[in-house]
C-alpha cells in the first residue's frame, strides 16, 4: 500500500519536473524574445550571412588567396581581370583579389580592435561618473563633452601624421578618440541603475564599490551597448579607410581597403584602371551596409523605442 503511494508520488514528481522544464523552455526569456525579434529582420539576417562570408574570407585569406598579396607579376602589370587574376592586377603586378581579401583582414581587425578600446574606455568613464556622481561626474563628463565637441577627425589627422605609420597607431588613434558615445550611454544607464534596490542591497552588505560597478550593475548595461558596439565597428572601419585613403593610415605594402582606394586619387587610375579601386570600394560599402543593417536589427530587437 505504502509502496504504491510512494510510486505514485514519484511519478507525479517526475511528471511535474518535465512539466516544469517544458514550461521553462517555452517561457519568454528576455534573451529569447530579443533573438526572436531580431530574426524578424530579414535584412539583418541576410546581412549577418554576407558579413560572415566576408569575415571568413578575411580570416582564411591565406587559403583563399591565389597569389601572395605582395607578389609582383611583372609580366602582367596593370592587367584587366582575367582567369589568372580574377580582379586584375595593380600597377606593379600584384593580384587585386588577394589584396582585397587581405585588406579585409586588416580593415576588419582594425575595426574590432579600435572598438574594443573605445568601448572599454567609454564604459569605464561612463560607469565611474554615473556611479560616483559629484565631482568625479563633473570632471569626467565635462571632459567627454570637450572630446565630443571637437571634430575628432582633425585630431586624428594630426595624430596620424605625427605618429609613426603602423596598424597599431591607427587602432590607438581611433580607439582613444571614439569613446565619448559609449561614455554618454553608459553614464545615462548608470544614473538610473544606481538608484535600484539591488544596488542599495549590495551596498548595505558592504560589497566594495568596484565590485558593485562591474559585477552588479555592468551586466545590465550590456544590452543597449550591443547595438552601439556594432555601429562603432562600422565607423572604425570607415575611419581607417578614410585615413588610409589620405595616405595617413595603414602603411604599404600591407593592403587595407583604404590604402587600396588611395590609388583612385590618381585620375589616370580612376579613369583607365577601374578594377584597381572598385573591389575595395564595393567591399567597404558592403561591409558598412551589413553592419548598419545588423545594428539596426539589434537596436529594434533590444529596445524598439530606442533611437540613435
Amino acid at each position: 500500500m505504502t509502496n504504491v503511494t510512494i510510486d505514485r508520488t514519484s511519478a507525479t514528481l517526475a511528471e511535474d519536473m518535465t512539466d516544469l522544464r517544458r514550461l521553462h523552455r517555452s517561457a519568454d526569456s528576455p534573451l529569447r524574445r530579443t533573438l526572436r525579434r531580431f530574426a524578424r529582420h530579414r535584412l539583418a539576417i541576410l546581412a549577418i550571412v554576407v558579413l560572415a562570408v566576408i569575415a571568413l574570407a578575411a580570416i582564411f585569406a591565406p587559403a583563399v588567396e591565389r597569389y601572395p598579396y605582395e607578389q609582383m607579376d611583372l609580366r602582367a602589370r596593370a592587367s584587366a581581370p582575367s582567369p589568372e587574376h580574377w580582379f586584375g592586377t595593380d600597377r606593379i603586378g600584384r593580384d587585386i583579389w588577394s589584396r582585397t581579401i587581405h585588406g579585409g583582414r586588416i580593415s576588419l581587425a582594425v575595426g574590432l580592435m579600435a572598438t574594443a578600446i573605445s568601448a572599454t574606455v567609454g564604459l569605464t568613464i561612463g560607469a565611474f561618473s554615473g556611479y560616483y556622481r559629484g565631482w568625479v561626474e563633473m570632471i569626467l563628463m565635462r571632459f567627454t563633452d570637450v572630446v565630443m565637441t571637437f571634430p575628432s577627425i582633425v585630431i586624428m589627422l594630426t595624430l596620424a601624421a605625427m605618429l609613426p605609420r603602423s596598424v597599431w597607431s591607427i587602432v590607438l588613434i581611433i580607439g582613444l578618440l571614439s569613446w565619448p558615445k559609449f561614455a554618454r550611454l553608459v553614464h545615462g544607464q548608470f544614473l538610473a541603475l544606481r538608484e535600484q534596490e539591488y544596488v542599495l542591497a549590495a551596498r548595505t552588505l558592504g560589497i566594495p564599490n568596484l565590485r558593485i560597478i562591474f559585477v552588479h550593475i555592468l551586466p545590465n548595461v550590456l544590452a543597449p551597448l550591443v547595438a552601439l558596439v556594432t555601429f562603432s565597428v562600422g565607423e572604425a572601419i570607415l575611419i581607417e579607410a578614410g585615413l588610409s585613403f589620405l595616405g595617413l593610415g595603414v602603411p604599404p605594402p600591407a593592403p587595407s581597403w583604404g590604402n587600396m582606394l588611395e590609388a583612385a586619387r590618381n585620375l589616370e587610375i580612376l579613369q583607365d584602371f577601374p578594377w584597381m579601386w572598385i573591389p575595395p570600394a564595393v567591399m567597404t560599402v558592403l561591409t558598412i551596409l551589413c553592419v548598419n543593417f545588423i545594428g539596426d536589427g539589434l537596436r529594434d530587437a533590444i529596445d524598439p523605442r530606442l533611437v540613435l
Partner: peptide, 13 residues
C-alpha cells in the same frame, strides 16, 4: 541605408 553606409570619399570616387 545605402546613403548612410557610403562614406564621402567612396561616394566621391
Amino acid at each position: 541605408f545605402l546613403g548612410i553606409s557610403m562614406p564621402a570619399f567612396i561616394a566621391g570616387i
